[in-house]
Design a protein around this nucleic acid. Structure first.
Lengths: 131, 131
DNA sequence: GTTACCGCTTTCCTCCAGGTAAGTTGCATC
DNA sequence: GATGCAACTTACCTGGAGGAAAGCGGTAAC
């Protein structure tokens, strides 16, 4: 099979799918901008499953430090992904809870998780072949 | 509405959904590990749309530098997300192309892009309210 | 009154993703 | 033979993400 490759590729800015591509590209970059960092989605997932306290979250997400978790929680609250509820028990009980809006991320999280699972399988497979 | 919050929350390790949660958490973290960085998914999206040359990619993904793009491309090739094809024209033509495997990311990319679009709308909305 | 827990905060430090700018190699065109 | 492009590479630098560890203010149990 021979493939002819033109010497000069004309940059066709007006291609319709080029515009569509640029659009979804921008959308993706916007999404990645809010969901940046190692832990943001993990915290959201954790709280979408059920409301929790600080220590419980830290315990569940192995590896996250108190400092980082505190920062992420503040950030997520500012962006309306979670709410921080203080109950007047003694001592005060603080429960973090996912908002309606964070639940719009459910399909994305499901997709990510599914892909991650399948990817791990693929890696394991390729490891076996190498041995 | 009064909510009674128990003073001590017993950490129930044996809850079934706690395990399921830990599972999808791990899956997600695995996925995020391979897809890390600002540009990886953007490059994949770009190449899933159509095969392209180095300069075309750099032109389409505004803001990415030659150095970073080169690094990402190497990385993505190593992980079997794209292939680098050299055609013996003169001078050589190099075309990057998405692999079968990278196309397994299509639903994820679609989800991300859709969410990003909807998120931008939400932000614009809340901006209008503030003014 | 001392010890422990909860929900953080503070300090300090390290690492590296990623940006800038300039250089390089091999053609090819003028 | 000078200029230019394509595809990178190299060298240098910086911000900020994120880790480790200790501290802190209030409460409460012993």
């Amino acid at each position: 099979m021979t493939i002819f490759v033109p010497m000069k590729v004309i940059r066709n800015e007006s291609l319709p799918d080029s515009k569509a591509c640029a659009g979804s590209l921008r959308n993706m970059l916007d999404a990645l901008y809010v969901l940046n960092g190692k832990w943001k989605l993990a915290v959201i997932l954790c709280l979408v499953q059920s409301s929790k306290r600080f220590n419980e979250i830290q315990h569940e997400i192995t590896g996250i430090s108190a400092k980082v978790l505190a920062k992420e929680l503040k950030d997520l609250e500012l962006n309306d992904f979670i709410s921080r509820n203080v109950y007047p028990t003694s001592p005060e009980t603080i429960i973090y809870e996912s908002t309606e809006y964070s639940r719009t991320l459910k399909p994305l999280i499901a997709e990510l998780s599914a892909w991650g699972a399948q990817h791990r399988e693929k890696i394991k497979e390729s490891m076996r072949k190498k041995l």
